[in-house]
């Protein structure tokens, strides 16, 4: 018998520090598989954020740097500009990308930086213990929206993929989910496309990944995947919002 599924070379052997059932691990594996498939691990530089995935440098088996909160796209810009032949990706959560780092992501996309952004949207701040994120759903209870997110004073959840798709320089923008095998397969395809675009020098690519945070949602991993399907996907539709053909 032949091994048809195993640990990609672009992941280290270090066990993930994430909570049981957290989708970060799936997202890490998909990115790593794509790096393996393109054979670019040894030419890749990853930028990890502040948040649960601040430890991502321990898990990706390539050169890594840790950014200040929200600044990963700026760091990635500096790396890519000074090392244009390398593959550069950022891995950011929703607090990082959609709150404190909005300026950096918008302008990296607007400059058409030839980098790939992996954006984990789990509608909550994980590492700090479950506070409201810019992507928290209306009515969702968190530590800092204890009576549910009230759009009158807290605004509506930000749709980053749609927002960034309005920028002419953004080459590829998609949203995927990791709540079931069929969606995971689609997510992998989309991540692969994003890196392909970078490899071809076609510019900015971002994949928004709807993920669960069972611990801070207060649900079991199986319930969390169901909650994502029933609550997040209706508000955050899956699909490609911007593809290279449209850019022309």
């Amino acid at each position: 018998m032949k091994k048809v599924f195993g640990r990609p070379e672009s992941l280290t052997e270090t066990p993930f520090t994430y909570c049981p059932g957290c989708h970060h691990g799936i997202a890490h594996r998909l990115v790593a598989e794509v790096l393996d498939e393109f054979g670019v691990r040894e030419n890749t530089i990853g930028v990890c954020p502040v948040g649960c995935s601040v430890f991502a440098y321990l898990f990706f088996n390539c050169d890594m740097i840790c950014a200040a909160h929200g600044r990963a796209p700026a760091i990635a810009t500096g790396i890519k500009r000074s090392k244009p032949d390398s593959i550069v990706f950022t891995y950011q959560g929703d607090g990082d990308l959609a709150s404190i780092g909005t300026a950096e992501i918008v302008h990296a996309a607007n400059r058409g930086e030839n980098i790939t952004v992996i954006f984990i949207n789990n509608a909550i701040y994980g590492m700090t213990g479950g506070q409201m994120a810019p992507t928290t759903l209306v009515g969702q209870v968190t530590q800092t929206s204890p009576y549910g997110r009230d759009p009158k004073t807290m605004g509506y959840p930000i749709k980053m993929a749609e927002m960034l798709s309005t920028l002419k320089s953004a080459t590829y923008i998609s949203r995927v989910a990791l709540n079931k095998p069929s969606n995971i397969i689609k997510a992998k395809k989309s991540i692969k496309k994003a890196f392909q675009i970078q490899l071809e020098g076609k510019g900015f690519s971002m994949v928004e990944i709807l993920s669960t945070c069972p611990t801070n949602w207060g649900l079991s991993p199986i319930e969390a995947s169901k909650w994502l399907e029933e609550n997040m996907i209706p508000y955050y539709p899956l699909g490609e919002f911007r593809t290279p053909e449209e850019v022309a």
Partner: peptide
């Protein structure tokens, strides 16, 4: 089918065929 491995967040499952 590898669906178990696909969903495993800890890359703890290997599949052989």
């Amino acid at each position: 089918c590898a669906f178990c491995a696909l969903t495993c967040p800890d890359v703890a499952i290997e599949v052989y065929k």
